[in-house]
């Protein structure tokens, strides 16, 4: 097991380096520069600015320096917001995004998985149809439709929840619901599929024939295997919640990393984009590593490949 974890860990680090290199050269090959502005700058001043940010050196050298800096926790200065470093921005906004993201993921899991189990156990009754049709509707309502609609209904028509800002616990509700409900729908569908597959297995028939009570069959025999599809989806779900946060934080004016990433992309703030991409990619790679370990733990047949 340790060897398997070590191997996957090294693989994850390689993937991260690959992502960083790809992003770096993609951003570096972009025409224009973060310092170009509407007004033409005097060449001497531009040269000085470029020297300050290290843009006067060749690309390869800049790449190696930036990798070295990141390993020391220094993501460089923000190219557009003068006097701020990317590390400062991350330190300030990451807690906000972490809170929003983890609550959303919890909402998704706590709603989706029980609904999926219930639907599978009560297959073809209204306890199956109602949650599953709702889930299908949820999948067709992406975050940027669901968010404004929730804001319209709960923020403006009923006026029970704030629609913009980040000042207290009640401000978390709508953004977290927007992000969480979408993935709750996915988890519900995946859990239902996984549980149904387990419930159709021969060993379940044997257990029933032996007179094992139904709740034992569901909880003891099927749950572990039935959850595997949902657990596999945790990685994509985290990636989705991160990119969903770009939209949700914009809609609800949440001062998190998602908003910074969108601003960075629109303003061509190279260091900010690179720093945030590394951070997001590390989170996703870490989640995928945890998922791989959980999968092997739940299904011993997967023999630490």
């Amino acid at each position: 097991m340790l060897k398997f974890i070590g191997k996957r860990f090294l693989q994850g680090i390689l993937v991260l380096i690959g992502i960083y290199a790809l992003t770096f050269f993609l951003v570096a090959s972009t025409p224009g520069s973060p310092f170009s502005s509407e007004r033409a700058m005097q060449p001497e001043i531009l040269a000085q600015i470029e020297a300050f940010y290290g843009y006067d050196k060749p690309v390869g050298e800049r790449f190696l320096t930036s990798v070295g800096n990141i390993l020391h926790g220094d993501f460089g200065p923000s190219a557009v917001y003068a006097n701020r470093t990317v590390t400062e921005i991350i330190a300030e906004s990451f807690p906000v995004s972490l809170k929003l993201g983890s609550i959303s993921l919890l909402v998704a899991l706590l709603l989706g998985i029980p609904a999926g189990i219930l639907a599978a156990v009560k297959k073809n009754t209204w306890l199956d149809y109602v949650p599953m049709s709702t889930a299908m509707a949820g999948i067709c309502l992406p975050t940027f439709v669901m968010g404004p609609l929730l804001a319209l209904v709960f923020g403006l028509i009923f006026a029970v929840l704030p629609v913009a800002g980040w000042f207290g616990p009640e401000f978390v509700v709508l953004p977290a619901a927007t992000l969480g409900l979408y993935y709750a729908a996915y988890f519900a569908r995946l859990t239902r599929g996984g549980m149904l597959e387990m419930l159709n297995q021969d060993f379940v028939r044997t257990a029933r024939a032996k007179g094992v009570p139904e709740h034992m069959i569901v909880w003891k025999h099927c749950l572990k295997g039935g959850l595997i599809p949902a657990i596999t989806f945790l990685g994509p779900a985290l990636a989705g919640i991160i990119s969903g946060s770009f939209v949700v934080e914009t809609i609800f004016q949440v001062p998190g990393l998602g908003q910074w990433f969108v601003k960075g992309a629109l303003n061509r703030d190279d260091f900010l984009i690179l720093g945030l991409t590394v951070l997001f990619a590390s989170l996703i790679v870490l989640m995928n590593l945890l998922v791989d370990i959980a999968q092997v733990a739940l299904n011993p047949r997967l023999k630490y490949d």
Partner: peptide, 9 residues
């Protein structure tokens, strides 16, 4: 990989 990020980039 975080694909949405790549498309944005």
């Amino acid at each position: 990989l975080p694909f949405t990020i790549f498309v944005i980039l």
